[in-house]
């Protein structure tokens, strides 16, 4: 099943959700008046796009509707998708050369360990050799959790004991990746709230170790965002970008009723592309992101 089908499948479970409401708004309007725009803005806010960005999108939509003399729902939907698509930019799949290091970061409970495990399976499926680094040495049993994912994906894992220095785990893992000639090293890290300075410093240190010890590798820093997160995700993206240059976002838990609309605001403000989406609990439920499909699924 492709990304779009999965997403739509998730949406179908809750018919009263956003997509249907938008569809109703668009399908049922007889006259393109303020009420229609207001309703659409409401729908955007309810999917966590945020007030400012929603207002901006609707403003652009009004203008476009005037310019293009839009009268029917189908054209209005098209215009809306186009505007959001513009904000999100073209989604190009993440190209990973060998050797590469992927650092997986984020706040607590967004699904970093699960995403790291799924990423390993994803790249292995593509014929790459992958090695995992269990650099979440803080949360109880996080190492065991990643270990199980490593077994499931059939890849190597580098780990130390709980409580050890995460930067040293990454250091070891880089050595192992080099000597075993692995294509991709994926580092899981501990969840940290972005307003805790010492934890962000720790992350910056891990990031520095990668740059110093493995300069020849392509470095990708992926921020894992939970689709149920609201406006705080903006603050997360900003703070994490300060500690490590974020190169992309993994949007998880899109199989629920949350739409993760905040990624639109993040795209607009910080221009960080969404690279993957998590749409379920199975190992293959991590898929490359497609802005077009995402927007379509939002308003279909």
């Amino acid at each position: 099943m492709g990304f779009f089908e999965k997403l739509k499948g998730g949406l179908e479970k809750t018919r009263q959700q956003l997509s249907t409401r938008t569809a109703d708004v668009i399908r049922l309007f007889t006259k393109l008046d303020d009420a229609v725009f207001e309703e659409l803005e409401e729908v955007l806010i309810m999917s966590d796009v945020g007030f400012e960005t929603s207002e901006d999108i609707i403003e652009r939509l009004r203008q476009k509707a005037r310019e293009d003399k839009i009268r029917d729902g189908e054209a209005l939907r098209g215009a809306l998708c186009e505007i959001i698509g513009d904000i999100m930019g073209n989604s190009v799949p993440l190209e990973v050369k060998s050797p590469a290091v992927i650092l997986v970061i984020g706040v607590n409970g967004t699904g970093k360990t699960t995403s790291a495990g799924k990423l390993a399976a994803y790249y292995k499926e593509q014929g790459k050799s992958v090695i995992l680094a269990a650099a979440d040495t803080f949360r109880a049993a996080a190492i065991d959790q990643l270990d199980i994912w490593a077994t499931r994906a059939g890849v190597d894992i580098i780990k130390q004991s709980e409580g050890s220095d995460p930067a040293s785990v990454v250091y070891d893992a880089i050595g192992a990746a080099k000597s075993r000639k692995k294509d991709i090293l994926i580092c899981d890290t501990a969840g940290r709230l972005h307003n805790k300075k010492n934890l962000m410093d720790e992350l910056a240190k891990i990031n520095k170790v990668i740059g110093r010890e493995f300069p020849e590798a392509q470095k990708e820093v992926l921020l894992v965002l939970d689709a149920t997160t609201g406006q705080n995700a903006l603050s997360q993206a900003k703070s994490f970008a300060g500690a490590a240059d974020i190169s992309g976002i993994i949007l998880t838990k899109l199989d629920g009723t949350a739409k993760g609309g905040i990624v639109i605001a993040i795209s607009k403000e910080q221009n960080i592309p969404v690279r993957f989406v998590g749409v379920g609990e199975r190992i293959d439920d991590l898929q490359p992101f497609s802005a077009e499909d995402y927007v379509k699924a939002l308003f279909e």
Partner: peptide, 12 residues
């Protein structure tokens, strides 16, 4: 419930 939850908190 996670304090960072957005609009979907009501649905859940």
């Amino acid at each position: 419930i996670d304090a960072m939850t957005g609009q979907d908190a009501v649905n859940a």
